[in-house]
């Protein structure tokens, strides 16, 4: 439960990549600030900060969101998955492996957000069509790949057991 502290600071408790985290934030900080500055989870990228590019995409209570447009206090009691939460002790997530195999990563700046949008759509729909994948990543801009390899990689990962 978020509580107000002194000097416009708020205590926020949330679950990030399966672990409970307690953070004290300011009213004007976003979920992106909470992740990058407070928790040092810098895999989530800061791009446009106006919801145009999708580089800051994380999954909040099962939904892909732009973390730059979620106030940190609004994430109180929520469950957040970031790019750091995809790989486990056994290695990379099948989506990450597919991105590498297919060549869906070039400069890499959009990749964490792209992977989170991909992960979110596969959580809801493990066997998406190419059109459904395209729609799911329409909010993630990539200036390098032309998107074809990204969609190829997501379709390839969708065929593999998680």
């Amino acid at each position: 439960m978020s509580g107000k502290k002194d000097n416009g600071r708020y205590a926020v408790g949330l679950t990030v990549n399966g672990a409970r985290r307690d953070v004290v934030v300011q009213a004007g900080e976003t979920l992106l600030d909470l992740l990058r500055r407070h928790l040092r989870l810098t895999g989530t990228k800061c791009g446009c900060e106006v919801g145009e590019c999708g580089a800051c995409t994380v999954v909040l209570d099962g939904k892909a969101v732009n973390s730059c447009m979620v106030l940190a206090v609004q994430a109180d009691s929520c469950n957040v998955t970031t790019i750091e939460g995809l790989a486990d002790a056994d290695g990379l997530h099948p989506l990450q492996e597919a991105f590498l195999e297919v060549g869906a990563v070039q400069c890499g700046f959009c990749t964490p957000g792209m992977l989170m949008s991909a992960w979110a759509v596969l959580q809801e729909n493990p066997g998406p069509t190419r059109a459904e994948v395209t729609r799911a990543i329409a909010g993630n801009l990539c200036r390098c790949t032309g998107y074809q390899m990204v969609v190829d990689a997501i379709m390839q990962a969708a065929k593999k057991p998680d």
Binding site: K63, A64, G139
Partner: peptide
């Protein structure tokens, strides 16, 4: 509207 991320919020 917007993108999936925006429609979700």
């Amino acid at each position: 509207v917007g993108s999936l991320q925006i429609r979700n919020r």
